[in-house]
Design a protein around this nucleic acid. Sequence first.
DNA 1: GATGAATGAGAATTCATTCAT
DNA 2: TATGAATGAATTCTCATTCAT
Lengths: 194, 194, 194, 194
Amino acid sequence: MIKERPKYRQIIEAAVEVIAENGYHASQVSKIAKRANVADGTIYLYFKNKEDILISVFREKMGMFIEKTIEAINEKETASEKLLTLIEMHYNQLSESPHLAIVTQLELRQSKPELRKEINRVLKTYLNVIDSIIDQGIKENDIRNDVNPKIIRQMVFGTIDETVTSWVMKSQRYPLVEQVNAVHQLLTYGLFKK
Amino acid sequence: MIKERPKYRQIIEAAVEVIAENGYHASQVSKIAKRANVADGTIYLYFKNKEDILISVFREKMGMFIEKTIEAINEKETASEKLLTLIEMHYNQLSESPHLAIVTQLELRQSKPELRKEINRVLKTYLNVIDSIIDQGIKENDIRNDVNPKIIRQMVFGTIDETVTSWVMKSQRYPLVEQVNAVHQLLTYGLFKK
Amino acid sequence: MIKERPKYRQIIEAAVEVIAENGYHASQVSKIAKRANVADGTIYLYFKNKEDILISVFREKMGMFIEKTIEAINEKETASEKLLTLIEMHYNQLSESPHLAIVTQLELRQSKPELRKEINRVLKTYLNVIDSIIDQGIKENDIRNDVNPKIIRQMVFGTIDETVTSWVMKSQRYPLVEQVNAVHQLLTYGLFKK
Amino acid sequence: MIKERPKYRQIIEAAVEVIAENGYHASQVSKIAKRANVADGTIYLYFKNKEDILISVFREKMGMFIEKTIEAINEKETASEKLLTLIEMHYNQLSESPHLAIVTQLELRQSKPELRKEINRVLKTYLNVIDSIIDQGIKENDIRNDVNPKIIRQMVFGTIDETVTSWVMKSQRYPLVEQVNAVHQLLTYGLFKK
DNA sequence: GATGAATGAGAATTCATTCAT
DNA sequence: TATGAATGAATTCTCATTCAT
């Protein structure tokens, strides 16, 4: 329900925008408060401290992100289709939220180790989704079982993540979604001709 | 050459250690100076500012890193062999410098946007090495020419980088080098069985 | 009477406890409100501001304190007996309210100058009681008239106050009342043997 | 030597003035720095934190205070003369430093419990001086041995302290030193006529 | 070249108080 | 009366950088 804890949502949305626009270190709490149309002190009724805003942003957004991805994947049958859908959803969702893309690809990585750990905990859920696709692929004899599945997942996530980061660093100047098939092809068949 | 001055090197080496041990945010200039056995002010005879230390660390270390990689690659013939060597060199060199690995994979990414740009400029040289391998592969008809080579490179670098980051985050507890062949196989033939 | 309203008393009692337990600076209005089982805002229906709570605590408690002291004194005849009774009452009453003792001897002295002035105004009533005993003693030719009575009162109050503070600072570990006679003796005859 | 750590002394002196004039809570570090003609940051080269300034003020000033008192006392023979001298020195020294008097009698007592403990540790030295006079008096059969010497000391210190506080609260409008003999008389022979 | 004492800008957080309900 | 969510002012301390020696 949108009316639930309206200030909480206001602050989350304001934080995404402010951090994307100014970068993490230049995003003073007072700036976020102003953007959210609340008093500085109000922030602390909803968040423990500044880091808590950041981790909450990530948790909230990533939660939606993963949820939608899982929904879309569940409509597909094969591991290959599911992988294609995952890439597509990943690109689509970040393309639709340019601010969020900046935050996840650049700003969030500037945070302190403790915060990184929290972020990785949330990220773990997403990696688990990739793992489950790979597991299915192996079980159904589609994906190779001669290499550690964890390395496969690292290739899949590493590739997707790097393509998104490149796109963000190029100021999101080209349509990310156009690369879906190329990336899927590459991951599936490798870079070799035969 | 200016860079042969002993204090310059002292400071670079001290910086790598201090950042790896204390993390980016807890690495005050005075701490680096103390470790390097120089006065705080001396730092500024060799570096423009704190960011300049960091970028210099990266430039120096990455310079060596790339140089050695190129040397090793030049002894190989085919694109495939060169790729294998690149992965091997990448893993080997970071395995031998655990401090440097922490700095490049985690700490340096906490820096401000401007610094990240500088770092990416240095990184560009490395990406160019990968690009040249891919170009050779395409020219020699080994690597597929039906996808944008830039995306291929993103897969290659993204995969290597993600595997290294995972290894660092797991406190470097397993031998990274063992994964060389698996990663090369995956990149070459993809994750599919056929 | 306004002061009979139950919430008023609740807040006063809560304030004494909270201040004694947490110290002056850690006694937030919200903490006092919670202890008193009222809402933060309710405090302001009964007290002008936070200082008003504190001064009211002191006024209420000191009012009782003085009242009882006067009652007890009135049953005595001579200045000497009255002084003895005053010391006894002082020690007894604070011994029975360890929280109050902490608040009066330590915490309340941490307050701002304006508040201290208010407190001194209340304290004045108590000093007047001492003054009246001294005056009686002088009139009845028991107490020396060759020194300024104000100084006598300062010795009496200073001595009592210092002994109580010492006792509070020693965590009230010994029975304060045991000292009644010694203190009375000392004040009366001085520290000299003859 | 006055030239030793000049900034340290500057800051101490500035702190006494600023705290006396504005009160402890209104004495921002920046205000002290400005008065001392140093930058805010310089304060932290000499003091751990704001509390450390306050305790250092007390330690320095009290150190001098006690030292001079001991010197003066050592020139006297009997316990009675020594006590007279102690009172005289106490009054004299505080009369000469009105700012310091305000700080010791009012502002320092507003500090937090941890700080109070530190202050009491310093104060202990002074109480020891009083104790030693009392001990001598007892040994030489001048001072009564039928009461706990600690209570005698509490009377002596409590009386002196209270007379000074009263004088400070009355804006130091009368000459404190005039009371020396009266106070000595009272402490020695008590308030009774015979 | 080398030093290190001095500088001073910059920001998160608390908590007394208000006021719409 | 009573509530409690919202307010926003106010201040310490850190640390990159300078510059007189």
